[in-house]
């Protein structure tokens, strides 16, 4: 799965928890969930659970630690998909 395909699948998940903003409209690899997208930290867990469901992967706590940006999330998703 390419980075673009992953972002395409991530966008609706992120949109559920992020308030409407220009940063959300211009979602890209550099987007930071908290700093740019203003996502409440308690909702980061929801994003991770939704990602697990959407991609059919399990994200352990060590991998979850890094998932504060779209870029880091793509890396974790790719890693977990390759382990399937």
């Amino acid at each position: 799965m390419s980075n673009e395909e992953i972002i395409h699948k991530l966008k609706p998940i992120i949109t559920t928890y992020a308030p409407a903003s220009a940063a959300l409209e211009n979602l890209n690899e550099e987007s930071d969930f908290i700093k740019d997208l203003n996502i409440n930290s308690a909702n980061l867990v929801d994003i991770i659970l939704d990602v697990e469901e959407a991609f059919g992967i399990t994200i352990d706590n060590t991998s979850m630690e890094k998932m504060l940006t779209v870029k880091a999330s793509i890396e974790v998703i790719k890693e977990k998909l390759s382990e399937k």
Partner: peptide
Amino acid sequence: LAKVQSNWRRKGYLDKI
């Protein structure tokens, strides 16, 4: 707000936190 923003009873939620 927490009540409507976060469903901590969701499966797997508590284990991640």
